[in-house]
Amino acid sequence: METKTATTVLHKADTRGKANHGWLKSHHSFSFANYYNPERMNFGVLRVLNDDVVSAGMGFGTHPHNNMEIISIPLEGDLEHKDSMGTSAIIKQGDVQVMSAGTGILHSEYNANKNKEVKFLQIWVVPNKQGVEPRYDQITLNLEDRKNTLQQILSPNADDAGVWIHQNAWFHMTSLEEGNSLHYQVNDAKNNGVYAFVLEGKVTINGQQLEERDGFGLWDIENLEISADANTELLLMEVPMDL
């Protein structure tokens, strides 16, 4: 019986692209805007992973998107969203927001707080359907439900836990206490890989030690073994590897 050997890519936190616009400080795990690295264009259909910090009262003015699944995960503070579909919403830690840009959408994002920064992840996933009707959704998760376990926050299925997108992808988050371990079974081992992003702490995944803001991609695998070397916050993004 042939056994596949996992293929991996390691992106240490300090190797990410950086942008400092004064009001916005951003780290790019993949090529974005003025940061271009031909070896870091994407991980499968995971096209953008931006780690953003927006100053009090500042934000992104109205701008367009199309044919992209856009996921925002606030880490600290409150983010105000408005779009051309008439949506007006505040998202905060524990929330997950998704937009299917489809045929085209305009939106803006501002720090709703006048006295503190907002920190959030902006993630773009290439969809498996072009030209869909634009849509918006957000959910509020119970943070206790990810303590020492995997909390699903995104899937391809509208009736499953978390938000859904037009792609065969699953996202999970966990708050894993030091000394605890988890097992992750890949949903589609034939086609998908997993990109792990450490929000804080130290963790070992399939033998690779990772620290805060490190990214680690694995494919040609069926499962992940995750061990917390310190109290750890972790995001796992399982995505198709073929664009």
Rank of each mutant, 00 (worst) to 15 (best):
P134I: 05
H28K: 07
I153K: 01
T3W: 10
Y136G: 10
A158S: 15
D137W: 02
V54Y: 00
T103V: 06
Q208A: 10
A89L: 05
T103E: 07
N142P: 07
L121V: 13
L154M: 14
D214A: 12
D78Y: 08
D229H: 12
P134R: 05
R47A: 06
T5V: 12
H172I: 02
Q138D: 03
A13P: 03
E212Y: 08
M241A: 12
R135S: 15
D214K: 06
N157M: 13
G104S: 14
F32N: 00
G61R: 09
M85S: 09
A13F: 09
N168Y: 04
I73T: 01
N231C: 09
F32G: 00
K18I: 15
G179I: 09
W170Y: 12
E144Y: 05
V54T: 05
I139N: 00
D52R: 00
T87F: 01
M41A: 12
N20V: 13
N111I: 01
N67H: 02
I70L: 06
L75E: 15
H183F: 15
N113L: 08
N113M: 06
L182F: 15
V194S: 05
L106N: 08
Q208V: 09
N148W: 06
T103G: 01
P64G: 01
Q97A: 05
E39P: 02
M85R: 13
I70G: 02
Q130W: 08
I91P: 00
I153W: 01
N115I: 06
K114Y: 14
I91E: 00
E144G: 13
N168K: 12
F197P: 03
Q152S: 10
V125R: 04
E144V: 01
S155D: 03
P74E: 07
N187P: 04
I226C: 06
S155K: 03
T103R: 14
E222V: 10
A230V: 05
F120T: 05
Q151S: 10
D159T: 11
S227I: 14
L49M: 04
D229F: 03
N66T: 09
Q209N: 15
E144C: 03
Y136N: 15
K147N: 11
N148L: 06
H166N: 14
I90V: 08
Q97V: 04
L79K: 01
F43Q: 02
L234S: 06
K114F: 11
L143K: 13
G131V: 11
S26P: 03
W170K: 08
N223H: 14
N168E: 15
T232M: 08
M237W: 02
E76A: 06
E212I: 13
G131E: 15
M85E: 08
S108E: 13
P127L: 04
E233Q: 15
I153V: 14
S181R: 11
G59Q: 02
Q209C: 10
G104L: 08
S155W: 02
M173Y: 09
E144Q: 12
N37H: 04
S29R: 00
P74G: 02
I90P: 00
L143G: 05
A56L: 03
D137C: 01
G217C: 05
Q93W: 00
